[in-house]
Simulated assay, not measured.
Amino acid sequence: MNLFSRIGLGALVAAVSISTVYAQAVMQPTDPSAPKTRAQVRADLIEWLAAGYDPNDWVNYPENAQEAGRIVAQRRAERQGLAPTTVQ
Rank of each mutant, 00 (worst) to 15 (best):
A14F: 02
Q88M: 02
S17Y: 09
G81I: 09
T20Y: 02
Y53Q: 04
I18L: 08
I18N: 06
V16N: 11
M1T: 10
V26Y: 10
Q74H: 12
G52A: 12
Q24V: 10
N64A: 04
A51I: 03
R75P: 05
N2P: 10
D44Y: 05
Y22I: 14
T37I: 03
T85K: 10
T30M: 15
A14P: 00
G52E: 06
N56I: 14
S33L: 11
P55T: 05
Q66F: 10
A77D: 04
V41G: 08
G52D: 06
L12N: 05
A83V: 03
Q74D: 08
A77E: 01
N60T: 15
Q66G: 04
I46L: 13
Q66P: 00
E47H: 04
A43R: 07
I7T: 12
L9D: 13
V13E: 12
E47F: 02
Q40Y: 11
I71V: 14
I7Q: 06
T86P: 01
R76W: 08
V26I: 09
M1R: 06
Y53E: 07
A65C: 01
L12T: 14
A34S: 12
E78Q: 13
P62Y: 13
Y61M: 02
V26D: 09
A15P: 07
I71L: 03
A39F: 02
Q24S: 10
A14S: 03
L3R: 15
Q66K: 12
A39W: 02
A68R: 00
Q40L: 12
V26Q: 08
R70G: 01
A77M: 12
E78P: 14
A15E: 10
Y53L: 04
M1Q: 13
D54Y: 07
G8D: 14
R75G: 12
S5N: 02
A14D: 00
R75V: 03
L9K: 15
P62N: 04
N56R: 14
A34V: 09
A34T: 05
A77L: 09
P32A: 02
K36F: 08
N60K: 13
N60R: 04
R70W: 15
D54F: 09
V72R: 12
L3N: 06
F4E: 02
